[in-house]
């Protein structure tokens, strides 16, 4: 299967639905180890992104990702804005020039997105940031030759859950040092929604 324009649009819409539904939960997670605005930030950013993508017409997945990137960067306010924004911008660049996006291209896109997140936030895997979900997802994608919805969902979910036992090294939660242990990383939970939404889109496309 390849990702077409309609799949990418559905991906963004499903992600937005999950984020709107879990807005208070995400903020509560952020209240425990941050400043309590992650739900609000993501809800605002993705609502605006969907507003943009549903009112535009697209001929390429790359352009959708680019609009999402620019919207998140300008509307989010917190760290998740430049981080998710950079991730989508890098994915947009990686799939540029392709009518539809193969598994291989998409994998490349996720790799570039991770490089962008690292460049922007200077974190590494294990620092209790959204990289702790993105990086295992990339490894999973690299091990496979085609999209596999169930393993995408499972990988993202268990990666998200494993941020609970980790001490934060980057981001606002790092100020709490060992007190950050025992709480899920909010950005990892929102990244789980992102990949779980992609898994749903892939299932519908099968």
């Amino acid at each position: 299967m390849e990702l077409q324009v309609q799949h990418a649009l559905n991906w963004i819409e499903k992600t937005n639905e999950k984020i709107q539904t879990n807005k208070d939960y995400l903020s509560a997670l952020d209240r425990a180890i941050g400043d309590g605005d992650h739900g609000l930030n993501m809800a605002r950013g993705f609502q605006e992104a969907v507003g943009k993508t549903t009112s535009s017409s697209y001929t390429s997945v790359s352009d959708i990702f680019k609009d999402v990137a620019m919207t998140l960067m300008s509307k989010v306010g917190g760290a998740s804005g430049p981080l998710y924004g950079t991730a989508f911008l890098k994915m947009s660049m990686a799939v540029k020039g392709e009518d539809s996006v193969s598994h291989e291209r998409f994998t490349k896109g996720v790799e570039e997105a991770i490089n962008g997140i690292i460049q922007r936030g200077k974190a590494k895997e294990g620092d209790k940031t959204l990289l702790d979900v993105w990086t295992p997802v990339l490894r999973m994608l690299q091990e496979q030759s085609d999209f596999e919805a169930d393993s995408l969902e499972n990988t993202a979910k268990s990666a998200m859950e494993s941020t609970k036992d980790v001490m934060a090294i980057k981001g606002r939660a790092a100020y709490l040092k060992e007190r950050s242990i025992g709480h899920l990383d909010p950005g990892s939970v929102s990244s789980y929604y992102l990949f779980a939404s992609l898994a749903e889109v892939l299932k519908e496309g099968e």
């Binding site: 960067m73 760290a79 430049p82 924004g85 936030g121 980057k170």
Partner: peptide, 11 residues
Amino acid sequence: DLGSARMNAEV
């Protein structure tokens, strides 16, 4: 001031 402000400055 804080880390995410730096990220937005870089962007």
